[in-house]
Nucleic acid binder design. Structure first.
Lengths: 191, 191
DNA sequence: CGGTCTCTTGACGGAGTTCAAAGCTAGTGG
DNA sequence: CCACTAGCTTTGAACTCCGTCAAGAGACCG
């Protein structure tokens, strides 16, 4: 049960099996089907999710009705609407499974209790957020630095596992352009 | 001395004057002149900065030689190249004062020691990174959601203090467009 | 096999860039 | 306190990347 979370926590703190079981008691394990939503826009954002198996994405609806994907998460990635989660507000995003997945979720209250009871989890989450923030900063830099075409090339080069696992139209959405333009890029690369 | 940091730490943890003085001993206080660099691209990124007074910015050089500003920091904001700082690598950014400023800086080693010695500072930094990450996510959403023009309107509306304090060309750079286009927008708004 | 979801192709349009040049503002030294 | 200069802002014209729309070709699932 939840081998992935245990391994991930162990990367940052020393924890024995008994202690890990106590930590795990704060979580629920949720299986989700492909295209099933873990969270919906407007809904109270009460959970922080950890991907134990599979792949999920976060998106919102643009004013023209199109889905704008902003994030993917594979095994051992955390995901929520962090702004809404911290402030206990309504989510501005949907979170949806791309593949059949297994997700661990912890409620806002449970996470607060977990951190109170196990101070080493403050260290764990400090590291998680520190890395997530560093990654977000890098991403913002790429958005400034690269053309759409170069964004695709860079992404395809850096995360080949994703490109295989994710449908093209979701990739285009994540990279911030249209499937039509992605098609044009791919066509150009073939020649 | 360093009233701002004390107030900021107190927002998240209970700390008395004596304990704060011990914490403060891990930092150096650095005065910087306008346009002076706190960090340069290619240099080993050994410091995490806290703005005690003034205003600083982070930028990098694009391949055409233009400076691309990615972040501003006013009083009680933290700043560094987080990716490089964590991995103890060379910085990919410059950090430069926009106004005459006073900055507290802590080295990588000192921060590690601080966190070891004062576990409540793990909580403080967990909160700092959690909020910074949430803010970065919101920013990424705006970059996807808004046109350049709307980005400007939204920013001018949300952070009027900045718009007064920062030269237009830096604002344009931060928002990801050219000073010429910003000029066009402002002209349009006048009519 | 039939229908819906995904990917491709091409024509057209518009938001935003680039380049060049002129006007304005503010800091600096005499 | 003024004059000079460097840096900031504005204007306009030409151009480009990329979005929108429309339609067709594959591909996957029941």
């Amino acid at each position: 049960m939840s081998v992935i979370l245990k391994k991930h926590v162990e990367k940052f703190v020393n924890i024995d099996e008994a202690a890990f079981q106590e930590v795990l008691a704060f979580f629920d394990m949720i299986p989700v089907k492909k295209k099933e939503n873990l969270m919906e826009e407007g809904e109270f954002c009460n959970y922080h999710f950890f991907v134990e198996q599979g792949c999920i994405r976060k998106f919102f609806l643009k004013e023209n009705g199109m889905e704008q994907t902003t994030e993917f998460a594979l095994e051992h990635w955390w995901m929520t609407d962090n702004f809404a989660f911290e402030r206990r507000e309504q989510s501005g995003f949907y979170i949806q499974a791309i593949e059949p997945s297994v997700v661990l979720r912890i409620s806002h209250d449970n996470r607060a209790a977990l951190l109170r009871e196990f101070p080493f989890m403050e260290h764990y989450f400090r590291m998680i957020y520190q890395r997530a923030y560093a990654a977000a900063e890098r991403r913002i830099r790429f958005l400034y630095e690269l053309s759409r075409e170069d964004l695709y090339l860079h992404f395809a080069d850096s995360y080949p596992q994703f490109v295989q696992r994710i449908p093209q139209y979701l990739l285009a959405s994540f990279l911030g352009f249209t499937p039509e333009y992605l098609s044009e890029i791919r066509n150009k690369l073939r020649s």
